[in-house]
């Protein structure tokens, strides 16, 4: 918390390479918001955040439901789905950058198998490269979402399910009508955790796209880091960071209010 205040303070100073005192008002904010990098990064984080949270939630839920069908080897499968979380993007990002590279990655491998017209070149497409970040990020996080959902599924009261079965409801219906509605809080928890993940995404961009093609896949966290430490503009970087936190707050405050609402109702 103190660190946040400190960052807010620096954002109003003329700091460059080192933190300095002084006051320049909203100058840093104005110059940051005027750059293309910043507007690209903010559009991106909306697209990326939405797609990443949606895809990861769906994949996590699907995997959890599948694993919940008493499949054989559940513990092995669970480990397979969870392991990406155990390995940092600093290293796996490189492997993803190979797989997604159209020159020698998946596209080329599929072509070598005979489908010579196969195309999967999102990584070099300015408009689609952001979705490659979504794929790799979902790969890493959906195991965690799965674990949370699995935990949720397993804590649903078996009595309710049994009652629904006696009423003659099929599996799909039971999930839709009985199980999932009871997992509301878990959905919220998963989404909030994923959302803060999305906003903090940094290593992935560095390893996978380097912000490119061009500046097409910059995210706020990379822009902040770049300003503060590559360009030696601590003041502007802090301003960008504060803007980023404000965005977070816009999302988190409704969540906090919802929590409070739930508690007072309970």
């Amino acid at each position: 918390m103190l660190f946040t205040l400190w960052t807010a303070w620096i954002s109003f100073t003329p700091s460059t390479l080192m933190p300095e005192n002084g006051f320049v008002g909203f100058k840093n904010y104005a110059s940051v918001m005027a750059t293309r990098n910043f507007s690209v990064a903010y559009t991106n984080v909306v697209v990326f955040g939405f797609c990443f949270v949606a895809l990861t939630t769906i994949m996590g839920l699907l995997l959890a439901i599948l694993l919940d069908q008493r499949v054989r080897g559940e513990s092995v499968l669970r480990t397979i789905f969870l392991y990406p979380m155990a390995v940092s993007f600093v290293v796996t990002g490189t492997i993803w950058s190979w797989l997604l590279n159209p020159g020698f990655g998946i596209q080329q491998l599929v072509r070598d198998l005979g489908w010579t017209e196969f195309r999967f070149d999102w990584l070099i497409d300015r408009d689609r490269a952001i979705y490659t970040l979504v794929i790799a990020a979902a790969w890493q996080a959906s195991g965690f979402a799965m674990a949370l959902f699995l935990a949720g599924l397993r804590s649903v009261d078996p009595e309710i399910v049994k009652a629904a079965q006696i009423d003659g409801a099929g599996p799909a219906r039971i999930y839709r009508r009985v199980v999932l509605p009871s997992m509301g809080p878990i959905f919220i928890a998963v989404m909030v955790i994923l959302l803060q993940n999305a906003i903090k995404t940094f290593d992935l961009v560095r390893a996978l796209t380097g912000g490119g093609p061009g500046i097409a896949t910059n995210l706020p966290a990379t822009v902040v880091y770049d300003l503060m430490f590559q360009r030696g503009q601590l003041g502007r970087g802090s301003a960008a960071a504060v803007l980023m936190l404000l965005t977070l707050a816009i999302i988190l405050i409704p969540y906090a209010l919802y929590q409070r609402f739930r508690r007072t109702r309970a």
Binding site: S97, L100, N101, P102, G103, D121, L123, I124, L208, T209, G210, G212, P213
Partner: peptide, 8 residues
């Protein structure tokens, strides 16, 4: 240029 280079 080779368009398929991406960030390599």
């Amino acid at each position: 240029m080779n368009p398929n280079i991406a960030a390599q």
